[in-house]
Amino acid sequence: MIGAEQQTDSMGEEGPPSLEYIQAKDLFPPKELVSEDDNLQVPFPALQGEGVEYLGRADDAVIAISNYRLHIKFKDSVINVPLMLIESVESRDMFQLHIICKDSKVVRCHFSTFKQCQEWLKRLNRAIAHPGRLEDLFALAYHAWCLGSNTDDEDQHLHLCRPGDHVRQRLQMEVKRMGFDMQNAWRVSDINLKYKLCSSYPQKLLVPVWITDKELESVGSFRSSNRIPVVVYRHQRNGAVIARCSQPEISWWGWRNTEDEYLVTSIAKACLMDPGARFTCGAPACSQPRGEGPDSSDSDFGKDVI
């Protein structure tokens, strides 16, 4: 908050203050809302410092652009994309916005007229453009509006930072999709619950079924930033997996870790115990030579989000 100074004239009398008291959030006033329909209501609770700039209708949806996000509310689903997550926006088939995100998701939004589609294309391209000033970054507006806010305002938005069911269940869905044998070869460990083991790993980790959490802790002490080897992908046809990890801290002395070596060899052993579909089924697709035919394990990549 900026204070006020009193001006004193030559007669010793105090004049009007030369500065006014302002709050930090006054430096980031929200822009005036441009709404295509006066009956529309903003379909989401705004964050501190967030202001909706455009509000309108698409085909079977309500679309809004704020200084933080693109929000599209369909009848049965909601798309909520931070502006800085959008890579590019294109107009396709005259009436369709094709929005490509930096995490490989694709969002499509249809409009009833070509003119309306072009107008929202311009609005969205302006919104995702590189900010011309540092003050245009939403993070600064959010911080300024949070200063001096009461606890109720903070609690109101805490739920936005918690993962939804689609995030919490994502691992289970991927494990099922890629066909992991969770009875005999693999298990999901909760050792990283609340990110206690590694802050850059998810809370649930996929490891061989016989590897204990105590062994994982030992491996974490040997890997840079506790990034232990964990499985992130399985090829359905041949059973091969990809595991991510950081470098082992062997130092100049060539240190070794028994549990770390045991975990790496156990991942290979689990692959042998959980072979791909081409070794276990008699369907014609399973008997195709390697490299021929589609791999169903990759079929979900690049799916549209609508």
Rank of each mutant, 00 (worst) to 15 (best):
M1V: 10
G15F: 00
S18V: 05
L19Y: 03
Y21G: 09
K25G: 02
K25D: 08
D26P: 10
L33W: 00
D38K: 12
P43L: 02
P45R: 11
A46S: 06
G51Y: 00
V52W: 00
L55D: 00
G56K: 05
R57N: 13
A64C: 13
F74W: 11
K75T: 10
N80T: 08
P82W: 02
L83N: 10
L83E: 08
M84K: 14
I86P: 08
V89Y: 05
S91H: 04
R92F: 02
R92Q: 09
F95G: 08
F95R: 09
Q96W: 05
H98S: 07
I100V: 15
I100Y: 06
K105E: 14
T113N: 06
K115A: 12
C117Y: 01
Q118D: 10
L124D: 07
R126V: 06
H130Q: 03
L134A: 11
F138D: 05
Y142K: 15
Y142C: 13
H143C: 03
A144T: 00
S149D: 09
N150H: 07
E154K: 13
Q156G: 08
Q156P: 02
Q156F: 08
L158S: 15
L158H: 13
H159Y: 14
H166F: 09
V167H: 11
L171Y: 00
Q172L: 04
V175L: 15
K176M: 09
R177D: 14
M178A: 14
Q183Y: 11
N184Y: 14
L193K: 15
Y195Q: 13
K196F: 03
S199T: 08
P202S: 06
Q203L: 00
W210F: 06
T212K: 06
T212R: 02
K214W: 03
E215V: 05
G220W: 00
S221G: 13
F222Q: 04
R223D: 04
S224I: 01
V230S: 12
Y233P: 14
I242Y: 02
I242A: 07
S246R: 01
S246V: 00
P248Q: 01
W252A: 09
W252K: 10
T258P: 01
E259P: 01
E259H: 11
E261N: 15
S266P: 11
I267S: 13
A268Y: 05
A270T: 03
L272V: 05
T280I: 06
A283Y: 06
P284L: 12
C286S: 08
C286V: 05
Q288L: 15
P289E: 06
G291T: 05
P294W: 03
D295T: 11
S297N: 14
G302R: 00
D304P: 15
V305S: 15
